[in-house]
Nucleic acid binder design. Structure first.
Length: 888
RNA sequence: GGAAGAUUAGCUCAGUUGGUUCAGAGCACCUGCCUUACAAGCAGGGGGUCGACGGUUCGAAUCCGCCAUCUUCCACCA
C-alpha cells in the first residue's frame, strides 16, 4: 500500500479507538499483576470539554498508558460529577427560557426536569474524551449521583452524625442571593470593588426618642443596612468618643433608638472611629452582637431584597435600596459626605453574585480531627505533592481549617437525611423507614406522614470526597466495619492523581480525609498539580474573552496526537500553561516527521546477500547505545513526573538522532538514479529501532503509533501496541556515543564551511584529520559531509584551506583559490585570543593556593585537563596562523 | 495585612549537592537550499551582565541579606 506524503489523522483515529474499545483493551479486572490506578477528576456532568480538561486528561492518559506498557494492571476510572450548584443553575436558566419559574415547581417536578437535562447533556464530555484518545475503563464509568454513590453519601452523613462531628447550627453564612443557597467560604472570591464610603450622622437621642442637636458620624459602605443596626460601637480607649458613654442615638429615617457600646474590635484610626453594628448582616458585627447581647434584626430576604423589618424601601433590591436611601439620607440631612472607596467584596464563585452574609441554620462537619490526620498523611510523605511547594499551602489550610458548611439550599443533590418531628426534634437516619422507627422511639404515636425531611441537599464535594473509594465499593463509606470488596481491596489506594491546584482544598484535601477515615490510609500516592491553561498573553481562558479554543475543532484540524503533544510541550509541572496554537502545529509536524521516516524505511528494498556497509555498521553501533542512553533519561524524567522533559527527550531522539543522523547514515545511495537495496542486518536493526521509538512515544501519541505499528508487519488478531512492553535500556559502550559525536561535529564543521563559502552541496570536498580521532567513523563522515576523501594525517601540508577544531583534534579542508586569507587569519586570531584568555584564567585558578587547598581533587584534576586542552589548542592555532601566513 | 513561589535568549522553560568549556533546550528569528522520506522539510547561523544591590566563598545562575517586579493562596478595616 502506498503511503501518502502527509499523515492524515482523521482517517486513523476513529478506526483505532473503535478497535481498542471493541477489544476492551482499556478494561481492567483485578489479577496477580501490580495495579496502577487513576480516578478521573470527574468533570461536571453537563460540562463540555475545554483546554483544561485536555491538559489534565492528556497527562492522565500518558501516565496510564505508560503504566500499561510497563506491565502493570492499569485502570483509569472515568465518571462525572453532579455539580449541584452549576447544574441546578443551568436547569433553572433553561426553564426560565421556557417561561417556567423554579418557584412554581415542586421539588419532584424540578428534579424531573433536572434528570431530563442530565440525560440529554450528561456524558457528552465523556464522549469528547474519547476523541482525545483517553484510555479510560468505560465499563467502570460512575456518576456521583447514581443510586449507589448517593447511598454512600447518605451513609457517610449518618456516620459522622453518630460520631458527633456533624452538627446543625445557626451561623453567619455566605449567602448567594441568585443561587438562593449558602456557599462555603472557599466558594467566595474576594475582589477589590469600587464603591463609596458614606459618612452618616446619627443624632443623640434626648431619652424620649427625639433627636438633640448633637450627633456622631459613622462611615459605612452599606447605608441600606442602617435599619438593621443594633448599636453604635466605639473603642473604649478612644477618648474622642468618651462623651458618648451611656448615650443612645437614633437611626436616621426610622428614628429607632440604639445604644452606644464599647468594644476593642473597633479600630480608632479607621473611618470615624464609630462603627455601626449590624449583627444580621455582617460577620464581625454578629460576633460583637453576641458579646453585647444585641438583638438581631434581619432586614434582607433570601433574594437580597429588603423585607418588612426594614420599615422603609421594603421589597427593594439591596443595591437599588442603597441608591435610594442615600438620597433620602441626604434630604434628611444625615449625609455628611461621600468618599470614593475601594474595598474587597465577596462574590459567589458560581453565579458571580455579591455574597450577602446571612444568618441561617446550616449543617456543619467538624474539621479538626479530620484535618489533623490528613495533614499528617502529606507531611509523612505517604502522599507526595508534585511540585512540592503545594505542601506549604496545604499545611496552612489544614492548620486553620474551619468547620465545613455542608448544607446547600438546592434540590439537585443528595438530600440531607434529617427528619423533623412535629415538635421540632429530629432524627438522622439513612432511610425514611429507619427514620420513622427512630422517631417512633421518641414518640410512638408518630406516622410517616408526621415526619418531614430536611429540605437541603449536601455540598457536591461531600460526595466527590468519597470518589476514590466509592467508585470501587460504594458500600464502604460510612461503614468502617465493612470488608472492602475485591475491586477496592485491589485498586485502593490509587496511584496518581492529576488535578489543578485550585481544588487542593475543595477536593484533594477532603479525599485524603475521607480516605484516612474510611480506609485508614491515603487515597493516592502522588498528586500531580497541573497549572492553569491561559492564553499566550497570560489571561485565563474564558467564554467572555473568547480566548478559549474548542478542543474538538483543534483535534479535527491537527489530530488528537498533535493536540496532546502541543499541550504537553508547553506544560511543566505546577506552572501555568500559556497555550499557543503554534505548539499544536509543532505536534502536527512531529506526527508528519514520524510518518515520513516510516515511509522511507518502508521504501527500502532488501538484498539478503549484501554486506553491511561500513557507514551503516558505525551508525548501528552508535544508535544502539544512544537508544539505551535516551531510555534511561526518559525513565528518569517519568519517575520525577517531568512529563514534558520525557517528551522532549523522545522528540529529539526521534527527530535529531534517528531521522537526521541515523537514517541519513544508513540510507542507501542512489546509483544511476536508482536507490540501492539495503542489507538485511541494517534493515532489521532499523526496524527494531523504529518499533522501539513507536513504543516510547506511544503514551503521548497513541493513534499514529498504533497505525504505524500495525502497518509494520502482519499482526495477530487483536494484537495492539497498547500492551507492547516499554523498551528497556541495555548496558551500552559510552565510547560508541562519544565517537559518533566526534563524527557529527566533524560533519557539521565541513557543512559549515560549505555554507560559509557558498559551495554547492554536490561538490565534493576533501578532509584531513590530525590527532586522536575515532577513525572508524570516517565512512559516516564521507557520506554525510559529502567528502571525496577523509585522511588521517601527521601534518596538513601547505595547501590553502580552512581549519577547524573538534574537541582538541584539528581538521582541515583544502580549498585552493577559495580562501580569503585575511578573513581566515582574523578568525583564527580571534579564537587564539579567546583561548589565551581562557588559559590565563585557568592558570590563575591553579596558581591560587587557596583554590588548590580547598577544592576537591576531581575539580583540580579537571582544571589541569582544561589547561592541557587549552595549550594544545593554542599550539594548533598558532601553527595554523603560521601556515596561513607562509601560504600567503 | 499574612504566606508561598517566581524573575535565566524575542517567547515558553530546564539548570539536581556551589566546581566539567555552564550559561542550555524547544519554538521564533536570520542565511542558503523545492537535494530522490518529509518545505508540516533540509543544512548552517546569530542571540542572554542569569531582575538590582550587597554579602559568604578559592569559586555563585545556584547559598545568605535587602530592594524591585510578577503570580498564586489565605485573611478582610465597617
Amino acid at each position: 500500500m502506498e503511503l501518502p506524503a502527509k499523515y492524515n489523522p482523521a482517517e486513523v483515529e476513529d478506526k483505532w479507538y473503535a478497535f481498542w474499545l471493541k477489544n476492551k483493551f482499556f478494561h481492567s479486572e483485578p489479577d496477580e499483576r501490580k495495579p496502577y490506578t487513576i480516578v478521573i477528576p470527574p468533570p461536571n456532568v453537563t460540562g463540555i470539554l475545554h483546554m483544561g480538561h485536555v491538559l489534565n486528561n492528556t497527562l492522565n492518559d500518558v501516565l496510564i498508558r505508560k503504566a500499561r506498557m510497563d506491565g502493570k494492571n492499569a485502570c483509569w476510572v472515568p465518571g462525572t460529577d453532579h455539580a449541584s450548584i452549576a447544574t441546578e443553575n443551568k436547569v433553572v436558566a433553561k426553564l426560565k427560557a421556557q417561561g417556567i419559574k423554579k418557584e412554581d415547581l415542586t421539588r419532584e417536578e424540578f428534579l424531573k426536569h433536572a434528570w431530563a437535562w442530565k440525560e440529554e447533556h450528561g456524558g457528552i464530555i465523556l464522549e469528547q474524551l474519547r476523541k482525545l484518545g483517553a484510555s479510560c475503563d468505560w465499563d467502570r464509568t460512575r456518576f456521583t449521583m447514581e443510586p449507589a454513590l448517593s447511598e454512600a453519601v447518605i451513609n457517610t452523613f449518618v456516620y459522622f452524625y453518630r460520631k458527633g462531628w456533624i452538627y446543625k447550627g445557626v451561623r453567619m453564612v455566605n449567602w448567594d442571593p441568585e443561587a438562593l443557597t449558602a456557599v462555603s467560604d472557599d466558594e467566595v472570591i474576594h475582589k477589590d470593588t469600587q464603591s463609596h464610603f458614606y459618612h452618616l450622622r446619627y443624632y443623640i437621642s434626648d431619652g424620649a426618642g427625639h433627636p438633640t442637636d448633637k450627633y456622631l458620624v459613622i462611615a459605612t459602605t452599606r447605608p441600606e443596612t442602617i435599619m438593621a443596626d443594633a448599636a453604635i460601637c466605639v473603642n473604649p480607649a478612644d477618648e474622642r468618643h468618651h462623651w458618648l458613654r451611656g448615650k443612645k442615638v437614633l437611626i436616621p429615617l426610622i428614628n429607632r433608638e440604639i445604644p452606644v457600646i464599647e468594644d476593642d474590635y473597633v479600630e480608632m484610626d479607621f473611618g470615624t472611629g464609630c462603627l455601626k453594628v449590624t449583627p444580621a448582616h455582617d460577620v464581625h458585627d454578629y460576633e460583637i452582637g453576641l458579646r453585647h447581647n444585641l438583638p438581631v434584626i434581619d432586614i434582607i430576604d433570601e433574594h437580597g431584597c429588603l423585607n418588612a423589618e426594614a420599615q422603609i424601601l421594603v421589597g427593594e433590591d439591596r443595591f437599588v435600596a442603597r441608591k435610594k436611601i442615600v438620597k433620602m439620607l441626604e434630604e434628611a440631612g444625615n449625609l455628611e459626605k461621600v468618599e470614593e472607596y475601594t474595598s474587597p467584596v465577596g462574590y459567589s464563585e458560581r453565579t458571580n453574585a455579591v455574597i450577602e452574609p446571612r444568618l441561617s441554620a446550616q449543617w456543619f462537619l467538624k474539621m479538626e480531627s479530620l484535618a489533623r490526620t490528613a495533614l499528617e498523611t502529606v507531611e509523612s510523605g505517604r502522599t507526595k505533592f508534585i511540585p512540592e511547594k503545594y505542601v506549604n499551602t496545604y499545611r496552612h489550610w489544614m492548620e486553620n481549617a474551619r468547620d465545613w458548611c455542608i448544607s446547600r439550599q438546592l434540590w439537585w443533590g443528595q438530600r440531607i437525611p434529617a427528619y423533623y418531628l412535629p415538635d421540632g426534634r429530629y432524627v438522622v437516619e439513612a432511610t425514611p423507614e429507619a427514620a420513622l422507627q427512630a422517631a417512633q422511639a421518641l414518640d410512638s404515636s408518630l406516622t410517616a406522614a408526621d415526619l418531614h425531611q430536611d429540605e437541603d441537599v449536601l455540598d457536591t464535594w461531600f460526595s466527590s470526597w468519597l470518589w476514590p473509594i466509592s467508585v470501587f465499593d460504594p458500600e464502604m463509606p460510612g461503614h468502617p466495619e465493612h470488608k472492602p470488596n475485591r475491586d477496592l481491596a485491589y485498586y485502593y489506594p490509587t496511584s496518581d492523581l492529576v488535578t489543578g491546584p485550585d481544588i487542593i482544598f475543595f477536593w484533594v484535601a477532603r479525599m485524603i480525609m475521607a480516605g484516612e477515615e474510611f480506609m485508614g490510609r491515603e487515597p493516592f500516592s502522588n498528586v500531580y498539580f497541573t497549572g492553569i491553561v491561559r492564553d499566550k498573553l497570560g489571561r485565563k481562558m474564558s467564554k467572555t474573552l473568547g480566548n478559549s479554543p474548542d478542543p474538538l475543532e483543534l483535534i479535527a484540524k491537527y489530530g488528537a496526537d498533535a493536540v496532546r503533544i502541543g499541550m504537553l510541550l508547553c506544560s511543566s509541572a505546577g506552572n501555568d500553561i500559556l497555550y499557543d496554537e503554534s505548539m499544536i502545529e509543532q505536534g502536527r509536524n512531529f506526527c508528519n516527521k514520524i510518518w515520513n521516516s516510516y515511509r522511507l524505511i518502508k521504501s527500502f528494498d532488501v538484498d539478503e546477500s549484501a554486506e553491511q556497509s561500513a557507514a551503516a555498521k558505525v551508525a548501528v553501533r552508535w544508535f544502539d547505545a544512544r537508544l539505551s542512553q535516551a531510555i534511561e533519561q526518559i525513565e528518569d524524567h517519568y519517575g520525577k513526573f517531568r512529563i514534558s522533559d520525557a517528551l522532549m527527550t523522545i522528540y529529539k531522539l526521534f527527530w535529531d538522532d534517528f531521522c537526521s543522523w541515523y537514517l541519513e547514515a544508513i540510507k542507501p545511495a542512489f546509483v544511476d538514479g536508482r536507490p540501492q537495496p539495503i542489507d538485511k542486518a541494517t534493515l532489521d536493526a532499523t526496524l527494531s529501532y523504529f518499533e522501539a521509538l513507536l513504543k516510547l512515544i506511544h503514551p503521548v501519541m497513541p493513534f499514529i503509533t498504533e497505525e504505524l505499528w500495525q502497518n509494520m508487519e502482519e499482526r495477530k488478531e487483536g494484537e495492539t501496541i497498547l500492551f507492547a512492553p516499554t523498551p528497556k535500556a541495555k548496558a551500552y559502550p559510552a565510547a560508541a556515543i562519544a565517537d559518533f559525536e566526534m563524527a557529527e561535529e566533524a560533519i557539521a564543521g565541513v557543512r559549515g564551511i560549505r555554507n560559509q563559502k557558498n559551495l554547492p552541496p554536490r561538490e565534493q570536498l576533501a578532509l584531513q584529520i590530525k590527532g586522536d580521532f575515532p577513525s572508524e567513523t570516517i565512512p559516516v563522515i564521507e557520506k554525510l559531509a559529502n567528502t571525496s576523501s577523509v585522511e588521517m594525517v601527521a601534518e596538513f601540508g601547505d595547501a590553502a584551506g580552512v581549519n577547524f577544531l573538534v574537541k582538541t583534534v584539528e581538521l582541515f579542508v583544502p580549498l585552493t583559490g577559495l580562501v580569503n586569507v585575511a578573513e581566515e587569519l582574523a578568525k583564527l586570531e580571534k579564537d587564539l585570543a579567546y583561548q589565551q584568555k581562557f588559559l590565563a584564567s585557568v592558570r590563575g585558578k591553579l596558581a591560587n593556593e587557596k583554590f588548590t587547598a580547598h577544592a576537591p581533587a576531581a575539580v583540580i584534576e579537571n582544571e589541569r585537563k582544561k589547561e592541557a586542552d587549552s595549550l594544545s589548542k593554542i599550539e594548533s592555532l598558532e601553527s595554523q596562523i603560521k601556515a596561513l601566513k607562509n601560504n600567503a
